[in-house]
Design a protein around this nucleic acid. Sequence first.
DNA 1: GCTTGACCCTCACGCAACGGGAGGCGGGAG
DNA 2: CTCCCGCCTCCCGTTGCGTGAGGGTCAAGC
Lengths: 252, 252
Amino acid sequence: MAYTVGQVARAARVTVRTLHHYDEIGLLSPSGRTPAGYRRYDDADLERLQLIRAYRELGFPLEEIAVILDDPEGDPLPHLRRQHELLTGRIGKLRDMVAAIELAMEARKLDIQLTPEERFEVFGDFDPDEHAEEAERRWGGTDAYRQSTERAARYSKEDWLRNKAENEDWGRRITALMDAGAPADGPEARALAEEHRQLVSRWFYDCSYELHTGLADMYLADPRFTAYFEQIRPGLAGYLNEAIHANAIDRA
Amino acid sequence: MAYTVGQVARAARVTVRTLHHYDEIGLLSPSGRTPAGYRRYDDADLERLQLIRAYRELGFPLEEIAVILDDPEGDPLPHLRRQHELLTGRIGKLRDMVAAIELAMEARKLDIQLTPEERFEVFGDFDPDEHAEEAERRWGGTDAYRQSTERAARYSKEDWLRNKAENEDWGRRITALMDAGAPADGPEARALAEEHRQLVSRWFYDCSYELHTGLADMYLADPRFTAYFEQIRPGLAGYLNEAIHANAIDRA
DNA sequence: GCTTGACCCTCACGCAACGGGAGGCGGGAG
DNA sequence: CTCCCGCCTCCCGTTGCGTGAGGGTCAAGC
């Protein structure tokens, strides 16, 4: 049996252009042409097309499909396994997205005008890295934040300058340490992380180790914080984050 | 606070190229430039970028993000709802794929060399239309197929010719009906569907209504069958499929 | 025999969302 | 003053086709 492009296209529910494309890239070339140059497909071509579409539905790129189909007796099992992992991974990600959207919709429905803080809770961080996400959940409470603003409101200009000086001193030391190549989970870095925690506790709010790691994750999650550290020294945000985590584990 | 592209890029964990892109399409243009033409981002830009990345993670296309962000006081809820549906739909599809892959792997593990028939069962049809899928599951048994081949093997050439003639006669009548514009779920079409069922029953295998709808779906699912009908008349496969379903419902 | 109208052909540009490189300034440190 | 890193603007490449433009082909009806 011989078929024209249009017939094949309708049969396989693809467009003619798709068949042209497959022909162009050599994935599925019709078994022949009419004198006028019309493509002629036969049953074997249809079978191949069926397989192509099936693999495509499974998410394989065309190039890989060509490899699979043109490698006779090649075992598709590894491909299948790989694809299986890939798909379950994607499903997980999509589910996370759906959950996040539901959260966002919930927030809208309650007519809560999202403050920047809340928006951060909702939209904050979808980094595949679970650290941040987990920390964000634990750190959800805004008590510390309130405490911080309350205290901050009472500081004088001198207080702020002292704070700034202490901060800068600490900043110089951790930058030097990083430049020197000391590991972020080494004792010196951990000591400076601890110092940071006490700086925060003294100036803003009681910073438990748990809160501290939450804060550290926020340094990576909120671009404004990250930018602040990255401006001091590229890589500092990540370095500090790791040091704080190491310190928290160390003291636990 | 002002930041350079590089700082912003590191902060938001995107590439500089991405920021250039957002600038190009007007999604996120830096609030200013230095005399030398360097992009200068401020805190507001960073906030916007954060939102952009968040929506991106939720799977929104950039264009839609622009709409959402640039429509102040616009409610993102409808967008979110739409996106939610879209994502759950995709999850469903992916799950089907995973199931199909598991089936395929199972088949490989059992070292069953897939015959074309089995391959069809595995890879047969991922049409979003559930009809086909559902029917495929019900129709999974190969009893009818065996019965069919057994009978077919005993037919003489004359039998085949008679079969062919009956088929062609039926084909002419349903084609005429379709050309006349009779609805596929109308009484005439249903009658011809019924006739088709009895033709199949007489020549190949006992064709219950259930099997018949399965067969009908296969006419749409297997390109070779579809091509056969489409060659007779474009749209015939779909027409017949609908008629058969209507007939089955009618008799139920 | 000639005109429709439905197909078919081959270019060839366009899409989303960037990646990556070329070639050339700008700017802070030593 | 030189270095080198970072920034700039083009501009081509990717994937899997969509969507014409411009032109040949084929079966049917007058």
